[in-house]
Amino acid sequence: EEPWTQNQQKLLELALQQYPRGSSDRWDKIARCVPSKSKEDCIARYKLLVE
């Protein structure tokens, strides 16, 4: 798996703010905001960050 770039991390953080918990299809929308990362990548990264 490719490491996360600073840019991808920033895009993930912005998308998390844009689509708060409870948004419909939240992770699909977030993944579309982060180039070359899947929905599963984004969820895994999020879990890593909040632990």
Rank of each mutant, 00 (worst) to 15 (best):
E40T: 08
P20K: 15
R26G: 04
E51A: 08
T5E: 06
K29E: 13
P3V: 09
R26Q: 08
R32K: 14
W27H: 03
C33T: 08
V34I: 15
A44E: 12
W4S: 03
Q6F: 06
A44T: 06
S23W: 05
T5Y: 05
R45F: 05
Q9A: 03
Q8E: 07
K47P: 04
P35C: 07
A15L: 03
Q6L: 11
Q6R: 11
L12Q: 02
W27D: 02
S23R: 06
S23G: 13
C42D: 01
P20W: 03
R45T: 02
S24H: 10
L14N: 15
Y46M: 04
N7P: 10
Y46T: 11
R21N: 05
E13F: 04
Y46F: 10
Y19T: 05
E1N: 05
W4R: 02
L16C: 07
R21Q: 15
I43F: 09
L49K: 14
I43C: 09
C33D: 10
S36D: 11
K39E: 06
Q8I: 01
S36A: 13
L16N: 03
Q9S: 10
K10R: 14
A15Y: 01
N7V: 08
L11E: 08
C33L: 13
R21H: 05
K37P: 00
D28K: 15
A15P: 01
L16I: 14
G22H: 08
Q18C: 05
G22A: 11
D41A: 13
Q18R: 10
D25P: 04
R21G: 13
P20C: 04
W27S: 02
L11H: 14
K47S: 08
L48I: 09
D25F: 04
Q9K: 09
L49V: 13
K37N: 00
C42A: 02
I43K: 15
N7Y: 10
Q6E: 15
A44P: 03
G22Q: 09
S38P: 01
R45A: 07
Q18W: 09
E13S: 09
I30W: 01
N7S: 14
E40D: 11
E13C: 08
W27T: 02
E40Y: 06
V50S: 09
K29L: 11
Q8M: 07
S23A: 12
Y46N: 14
Q6P: 11
Q18Y: 08
R45Q: 12
L11C: 14
C42F: 00
L48G: 13
Y46Q: 14
A31Y: 02
S23N: 06
R32T: 12
V50A: 14
L14C: 12
N7H: 13
K29N: 12
L49A: 14
Q17W: 05
Q6S: 06
W27P: 02
L11G: 07
S24G: 13
E1D: 10
C33G: 05
Q8L: 03
Y19M: 02
L14A: 13
K39N: 03
L11Y: 08
Q17K: 13
L14M: 12
E51D: 09
L11D: 07
S24L: 13
Q17H: 09
E40V: 08
K10S: 08
L14P: 02
Y19A: 03
I30C: 02
Y19C: 02
Q17A: 10
C42S: 00
L16M: 12
K10V: 12
V50G: 15
Q8C: 07
E51T: 05
K37R: 08
W27V: 02
E1K: 15
K39G: 04
R32Q: 14
Q6A: 14
A31Q: 11
R45I: 01
K37D: 00
Y46A: 13
K47D: 10
C42W: 01
A44G: 06
E2R: 03
Q9M: 14
C42H: 02
Q17S: 13
L14H: 08
W4E: 03
Q8P: 01
E40A: 12
T5A: 06
L48C: 14
V34W: 00
Q8V: 01
L49F: 14
N7M: 11
E13L: 09
I30Y: 01
K29C: 09
L49P: 07
R45V: 02
L14G: 10
Y19V: 08
K37H: 15
L49E: 11
Q8H: 06
N7Q: 12
K39M: 05
Q6H: 11
V34D: 00
S36Y: 12
R26P: 04
V50R: 12
E13V: 04
S36C: 08
T5S: 03
P3T: 15
L49S: 15
Y19E: 04
L49W: 14
L48E: 09
K47N: 11
A44W: 04
A15K: 02
R32W: 06
C42E: 00
E51Y: 15
A15S: 07
R32H: 12
K39W: 01
E13T: 06
L14K: 15
K47C: 15
N7D: 08
P3H: 15
R32G: 13
T5I: 03
V34L: 06
A44M: 11
Q9I: 15
K29T: 07
Q18T: 10
L16F: 02
T5F: 02
Q8K: 01
W4T: 01
P35G: 11
K10C: 10
K10I: 05
K39D: 02
L48K: 10
S38D: 04
S36V: 08
